[in-house]
Design a protein around this nucleic acid. Structure first.
Length: 430
RNA sequence: GCGAGCGUAGCCAAGCGGUUAAGGCAGUGGAUUGUGAUUCCACCAUUCGCGGGUUCGAUCCCCGUCGUUCGCCCCA
């Protein structure tokens, strides 16, 4: 145990898991392309102040969970606890607003929070972040939701629910907050201790308390939806209308409250029952004030973050994706001359577009065949002393065991043919 | 930050106070200098996360510590 371990809450993504990550990344890229979103890559760390100002000093993500430190120049730096703030900073700094119209952006990468790890939660975790800046139109809200649902559908995930709410403008929320506190204060001593604390710090969060008694009290509480201004209400109705038009079903949840300060109007979460305590795979909302708050021009925006690790948990439960690499050819050779020849042939075949693995062990043919079998290759090419002398090679179909000898020159001459046959063989198996 | 469970090989594990620390998978070598999911044999933990304590004796009991898992808080 004296060897160095990965830090708590961090994890290695091993070769057995990385194909799943690649699948998610590939499909995400594809769907985002369909929606005309463009990738942006921003730094993993930023000035601490960006997060303090953008996300909110009082939020847990910033107040107690941020990895912040002083660099060698005495600047206060933080690893990003989420992606939106940095993306908005880049939007402002690079004056992307000057290109007019709306900007559709996405980014996939790690974020960091100093929390106790548990199911679906790590200190370094990955998020797909999708944002559309410059539109107040409810269709923009629905567009990002449509991206999320299409991506999840493409991955084959079922049994997810879209929870939808509007938290209104900051004025709406302010008046609601007062009404809520007015209602709850007489019950203060009956609330669970966490909620008593929240009554002062962040009353809206009491709405989704897990405590039974608190839940009972909250059922009778005034509803946020009754405090929406006319405009807020109209926007919310627009969102619902467009969702319905697109055939995306949703569940209005007046208790859905987002954790970060910058949200306004639309708030949504996509949840799964199969994730344990962290049910949310994807969460987002509108943040019309954030860009201005960070020093940019007044720009409405909406987006979401999707937790890749949580997605992976769901996909692994389905066991739908293969983790076996696609290997065409496995080279078996023994003897100095044979090993030399097979190295050359392997390289030529790679240049022809094959994926080729060469057995380097020099061990008995029996062992090499065993490894060839397990490698998942379709074809085994064997060069021993006899073949090396005669300039030949044994071509073996590892599935059926059929084997034929041909000259190395013929092998290369028929390389195109072979490729079609390998594809055919693989299709037959699938 | 708080609560609970668990740490025996690369993986899955049995043992729960007496000293040879089961078994399975994987791996390596061999039976078989050249043909693979069959079979057989051998090898693979001076040691049970780490430190301390109790005991004649501790993988097993106690304390601490680290890690891990699940939950709370919070969140993707």
């Amino acid at each position: 145990m004296s060897s160095i371990q990965a830090l708590r809450g961090t994890r290695d993504i091993l070769p057995s898991e990385s194909p799943l990550w690649e699948t998610i990344e590939r499909l995400a890229r594809h769907v985002l392309n369909q929606f005309a979103y463009r990738e942006i890559r921003t730094p993993l760390f930023e000035q601490t102040e960006l997060f303090a100002r953008g996300i909110g000093e009082a939020t847990d993500a910033v107040g107690k969970e941020m990895y912040s430190f002083e660099d060698r120049g005495g600047r206060s730096i933080a690893l990003r606890p989420e992606i939106t703030a940095g993306l908005v900073r880049a939007f402002i700094q690079n004056k992307l607003f000057a290109q007019g119209g709306v900007q559709r952006l996405w980014h996939l990468g790690p974020a960091f929070r100093y929390e106790r790890p548990q199911a679906g939660r790590q200190r370094q975790f990955h998020q797909l972040d999708v944002e559309i800046l410059g539109s107040r139109d409810p269709r923009a809200d629905v567009e990002v939701i449509a991206i999320a649902t299409q991506l999840l559908n493409t991955l084959g995930l079922k049994a997810l629910t879209l929870e939808l709410n509007s938290v209104g403008s900051s004025e709406d929320r302010q008046s609601y907050r007062e009404a809520l506190v007015r209602y709850l204060t007489p019950f203060a001593h009956e609330l669970d201790t966490d909620s008593q604390d929240r009554l002062i710090r962040n009353p809206l969060r009491i709405l989704d308390s897990k405590d039974k008694r608190t839940q009972e009290i909250v059922t009778e509480a005034p509803s946020l939806l009754d405090f929406l201004s006319h405009d807020s209400q109209k926007h919310f109705e627009g969102v619902q209308q467009h969702l319905t038009n697109l055939g995306i079903s949703f569940n209005i949840n007046p208790r859905l409250v987002r954790g970060l300060d910058y949200y306004t109007h639309t708030a949504f979460e996509i949840q799964s029952a199969d994730l344990g305590a962290q049910a949310t795979v994807c969460a987002g909302g509108r943040y019309d004030g954030l860009v201005a708050q960070l020093g940019g021009p007044d720009t409405p925006a909406i987006g979401f973050g999707m937790g890749i690790e949580r997605l992976i948990i769901l996909l692994e439960q389905m066991k739908r994706f293969s983790t076996v690499p696609e290997l065409d050819i496995y080279f078996i050779s023994r003897g100095e001359k044979a090993e030399l020849q097979s190295a050359i042939l392997a390289n030529q075949l790679r240049q022809q577009g094959y994926s080729v693995e060469v057995d380097l062990s020099g061990s008995a043919f029996g062992k090499q065949f065993k490894r060839a079998d397990r490698s998942g290759a379709v074809v085994g090419l064997i060069v021993g002393d006899a073949e090396a002398e005669a300039g030949k090679v044994q071509l073996k179909w590892l599935g059926s065991g059929d084997q034929a000898e041909l000259s190395q020159a013929d092998l290369m001459a028929q390389a195109k043919d072979l490729k079609a046959k390998i594809a055919q063989r693989r299709a037959d198996l699938a």
